[in-house]
Design a protein around this nucleic acid. Structure first.
Lengths: 192, 192
DNA sequence: GGAATAATGTGACTATCGTCACAAAATGAA
DNA sequence: TTCATTTTGTGACGATAGTCACATTATTCC
């Protein structure tokens, strides 16, 4: 097994135990994929073809609101970069998934994933547990947004995602925490 | 089948098809429960005993941040009032679930639910689909928070949840959308 | 029904953020 | 390396939200 496959396996297992055979059923439906910086993994208006388990780089999820790009998630190594609304619904996506740096990972096609759910109760459970985890994280992020002021939101990122801050353009981070980019620029300066 | 049981069934089925026998397996683990206004369904520091399918009334989820009550969700008829972090983890909850009005519903104990997941792949799938739906909604709410200013957040609530606005104290709504209660009071006045 | 309690409204003031305009760096491509 | 493009920094200003204090309604509960 390659290094990246080992990482994939241990990530999956952290959500739910899998036999070697089960993991293999997952592995065979994945396809190694590379993206150049600024390449799209998903474009708004399109059907969602699947998701990417990232082994290298950063992927961003954004949406255009009032003709501005609003980033709503960032994904890094060991994350599943995905847009859940269109992945779950068979509708076209309103959001875009884009490579913020050069990216590598294992691509899982939506149809293959659904078949895997049909074939294996273990994966259905793994999926449920992953979703529980994601929902829990999202709730945490939401209460951070409503309860902290801009400066403290930045400090929250600094504390919880220092790597993201280093590698993601400031203007994207600003939209992510709901602050004007000029304001975030000044906050960052003050915090030095 | 009673009216409320019919509503429960159609709600479950909207996420995933169930046979009559399967629905019955669900029904037998539920317990009809009433709460008086201001009664707790879950208190912070406690283990999460389960969730409530609401047939009447409103339940709020809040957490104390910097000694202030911050509401992060509201649940109404046909919702499952729950705190996902503690429900999924066996850890004590940081949040509180409280009846905002008098409430009625079907209570589902955590252990019974987990057993049902073990026994039935249909429920595991139903759970996964419900979580996909909740996560999708939560993402929508998050991007609303980061992209709209306070006044437009209020208008968003007005448009999407007019009933909530009528029945939930203004100060709770204010924390929910990340605005001071005085500000929301003035926004509401302006919008008349 | 009336007192106690909780929730909301409001004025005055301050702090903070957003916006616009443009300058300065940084990055990328040829 | 150099030019073009993108990203970030910054000043000035206006708009808006937060805070504190207290008045005014609503609600709850004997």
């Amino acid at each position: 097994m390659t290094d990246t496959e080992t990482i994939l396996k241990s990530t999956l297992v952290s959500f739910h135990k899998l036999t070697d055979a089960e993991f293999n059923n997952f592995l065979v439906i994945t396809k190694f994929k590379k993206l150049k910086k600024k390449e799209f993994l998903l474009e708004s208006g399109c059907y969602n073809p699947g998701m990417l388990f990232i082994t290298k780089g950063i992927v961003g999820l954004y949406e255009i609101i009032n003709s501005k790009e609003v980033y709503t998630s960032f994904f890094r190594s060991s994350d599943f970069a995905s847009e859940i609304t269109s992945l779950a619904s068979q509708k076209t996506s309103a959001k875009n998934l884009i490579a913020i740096t050069d990216v590598e990972g294992f691509y899982i096609r939506r149809n293959d994933l659904l078949q895997l759910y049909d074939k294996s109760a273990s994966f259905e459970r793994l999926g449920r547990k992953l979703l529980e985890h994601l929902l829990s994280e999202q709730h945490k992020f939401t209460s951070m947004l409503t309860s902290l002021k801009p400066e403290d939101r930045y400090k929250y990122l600094l504390k919880n995602n220092p790597e993201l801050i280093k590698r993601i353009p400031l203007q994207y981070l600003a939209s992510y925490i709901g602050v004007a980019r000029e304001t975030l620029s000044r906050i960052r300066k003050r915090s030095l």
